[in-house]
């Protein structure tokens, strides 16, 4: 069993968890529980198969179980907007905060799909495997989530509107 195999995936698990739950500490707790479970079940992982997808599956299960046990405090997460890249200009920062707020307003199921596709850049097939849902469900969640985000962002006037002279 090689620790490095799992350890090298930690930064990406943290990125996904942070985007999923918002709060830094809740996110790292989620990563921690995922890692503990991964270690306990490592014998179930098939060498040669995609370890990252397997870890996302575990994180998904931990997330769903935790969300069932106690709902994440979304409001608190919304207050703590994650640190944004230092390169971002002020107007970009506003956009980033808006997009994060809108992301929090999605259902957890939609948020998972959007993030796995947009941030983790998994293929639709990989998302279907990681979340253990049919690909048709992946597509419908993705489509609804994106449209909802577009509506919300548009309503706030964040997306540039066409200039009408």
């Amino acid at each position: 069993m090689d620790r490095r195999l799992i350890i090298e995936h930690i930064p990406r698990l943290r990125r996904y968890a942070r985007a999923l739950v918002g709060d830094r500490y809740v996110a790292d707790d989620l990563v921690q529980d995922t890692l503990e479970r991964a270690w306990n079940k490592f014998y179930l992982w098939r060498p040669g198969s995609d370890l990252r997808a397997w870890l996302f599956t575990i994180m998904h299960n931990v997330f769903v179980n935790q969300a069932r046990r106690r709902r994440y405090e979304i409001e608190q997460a919304m207050e703590e907007v994650p640190a944004v890249s230092v390169r971002a200009t002020q107007s970009e920062q506003l956009e980033l905060q808006d997009v994060d707020r809108v992301l929090r307003s999605l259902s957890p199921e939609q948020r998972e799909v959007v993030l796995l596709v947009a941030v983790e850049q998994l293929t639709y097939e990989e998302v279907s495997g990681a979340l253990e849902i049919p690909i048709g469900t992946v597509m419908s969640r993705l489509s609804r989530a994106r449209e909802r985000m577009r509506q919300l962002l548009g309503a706030q006037g964040v997306m540039p509107l066409k200039v009408v002279k």
């Binding site: 503990e36 994650p82 970009e92 980033l96």
Partner: peptide, 25 residues
């Protein structure tokens, strides 16, 4: 979304996460 969350990749990994060990399992 990428510019919002990619910076997490550059953060140092907390020691507690690196310390998760398989022993208990």
């Amino acid at each position: 979304l990428r510019s919002l969350y990619n910076p997490v990749l550059d953060e140092p990994v907390p020691a507690a996460l690196l310390a998760v060990r398989p022993h208990a399992g």
